[in-house]
Design a protein around this nucleic acid. Structure first.
Lengths: 344, 344
DNA sequence: TTGTAGGCGTTATCAC
DNA sequence: GTGATAACGCCTACAA
């Protein structure tokens, strides 16, 4: 009984028998093989429909060594940016006949490792990953590369990966234009609530921040620079620390929108006028930023573009099997754009 | 070359050879079969790790007729409610060793049908589905039930399905408490922006609305009741129509938060005081409702609870293979709760 | 254009 | 406690 749970499904043998043909012909007909008579093809298709036949992907995959399945690992699907990217990826891959196994690491490195093992067992044809913020060692992805499975990293990516495709937003420029915008609107005392420097995202945005400051001959106040998990609570705490002091910032760049929202709420409660006394700019163009009062200026990352590039790169790798091609080593960068609203 | 894309992976035969054991023993050891010596088990595990062995799920599934994979069909993962439910489901199933193939129908019935075909081919061990708003004929799910694959519907569910598990929010009560709340806070002229009546969701919420109105001897103004796709634009249009008239409502119940937000924005633009002249209540407790000014009163659906119940029900069906059990026919209802904020 | 036969990697059923 | 063997459903040389 253990393995009898599922009722037996029809197989190509059933179709073969019904049509007095050989299983091979059925297989060929179903796969639209050129050397099959039109009529035979039609007969097979009709009979397949009639019997409710569905190809067994396991058997097919075992034999052909292809699963038509792509693995995807993200921190959390409920993060706006990722949700949008995933939707685009899924719709894109579907057109090419690929399925997507979506896995969430919950931003846990252990979970991420476990998921790679699972996807390895599933023999996915390709892998897409946005790593956890704490992933600095990417060796758990090596197996895929080693056995020729293309890997596309996006958003949170390895720094020195030579064999995988890397797709990232222009975080340096994002940090730079956000900070420059604050400066241009009159801020001289600028704070930066950033994420942990273990991730390329925040390294680059921080570098952009520093660059803009330097270019305008503004000094960075280290007490106003935070590297922390970008939660609502942490942002509030950072705000509290800064506004406890005698000298307070008049510009704030946060590396995500949740922090910007928290900061805005804090300002509201403390009677700090935004944008009068404090200008705020966030990152990601989360739907909440346009809805809050005042609407928050932020940096658009074009998740749709990111998703499209991922699909394009992956399909390309899958087709050409160019797993050791040079072009792959050059990261693909998606532009960002300042969305100016009411907080600056 | 066609099927040589992936490098050959190690198999149990490789382990067997390295250890001078038979493949059968390796298989048993890896599956923690009772009749294997501890030492042998350890040796096998060690060698498997050393060789970087990963079980081939296709081969295993083909033989054992189990995929340890659950299919999930939702309209869109980026909808807040679904994103939360999915996260809970995935984390829950993971504990039981099940993977999840997440598919998006984009609220298209054709896509939904296609996805069932794909998941049929994948021979998923179970299926979870939140249907499109237009799904009134659920026969494309019959195949799963027929071959003994448990199916759990949630949110948007079939009305007369006898063999599948049904998990839904208490939409009738949600509509009822929302409307009652408006009445209790002084509204007598109440409008209802609802979704299409093809879905149980909006049938039930509408019934709750009507029931509350009747109970308080209030008449329903049919010009103020809309059944439409619950988009931002449609809600604005509905508002425009209502507020073009001489008599305007002073209470509004919308079946989702996007519509509530659109209505609030409309009111703001037209100088209609909320909650003074118009009270608004939404549905779902989308994060945006608590962030907008004024924060919107809404109905909490407890996606986390929904997710937990789904996992529980599914695991239960999977274990007991109770595919024709009576208890399954009784829908499981998750309570809802009024979240009172500033718009009422 | 169609048929035959072998094998993909694993597990289950026998034996021993 | 372990080994030999067949079978899961499909695909693809090779043969006809």
């Amino acid at each position: 009984m253990a393995n009898q749970k599922k009722v037996q499904q029809n197989t190509i043998l059933d179709i073969a028998e019904a049509l007095k043909l050989s299983p091979a012909t059925i297989s060929r007909a179903l796969n639209d093989h050129p050397h099959v008579k039109e009529k035979t093809k039609n007969d097979v298709l009709k009979m397949a429909a009639q019997l409710g036949y569905r190809r067994n992907n396991m058997a097919s995959g075992l034999r052909s060594n292809k699963t038509h399945t792509i693995g995807l690992i993200v921190p959390r699907i409920s993060m706006f940016f990722h949700a949008e990217v995933i939707t685009t990826i899924q719709n894109g891959l579907q057109k090419y006949g690929y399925n997507l196994i979506i896995c969430q690491s919950n931003d846990s490195l252990d979970m991420e490792k476990e998921l790679t093992e699972i996807l390895l067992s599933s023999r996915v044809d390709g892998l897409i990953a946005a790593c956890t913020l704490g992933t600095t060692d990417f060796s758990h992805f090596d197996k895929f590369l080693q056995n020729g499975t293309p890997v596309v990293f996006y958003d949170r990516v390895p720094l020195n990966e030579q064999k995988a495709t890397i797709i990232k937003g222009d975080d340096f420029r994002g940090g730079y234009i956000a900070t420059s915008h604050l400066i241009e609107t009159g801020c001289k005392k600028i704070a930066h609530i950033s994420g942990p420097l273990t991730s390329n995202l925040y390294q680059d945005r921080s570098a952009g921040f520093v660059k803009a400051m330097e270019q305008h001959k503004l000094s960075v106040n280290e007490n106003w620079v935070f590297h922390q998990e970008l939660t609502h609570a942490n942002a509030r705490e950072a705000m509290r620390k800064m506004f406890d002091g005698d000298v307070v910032p008049n510009g704030l760049f946060t590396d995500n929108d949740t922090s910007a929202i928290a900061a805005l709420e804090f300002a509201r409660e403390k009677g700090i006028d935004v944008p009068g006394e404090l200008k705020i700019i966030g990152y990601s163009n989360d739907p909440r930023t346009s809805i809050i009062t005042p609407a928050i200026t932020t940096v658009e990352q074009f998740p749709d573009e990111v998703g499209k590039k991922i699909v394009e790169a992956l399909i390309n790798s899958l087709k050409n099997n160019t797993n050791i091609t040079d072009e792959r080593t050059v990261p693909i960068t998606i532009p960002v754009q300042l969305i100016r609203r009411m907080t600056t």
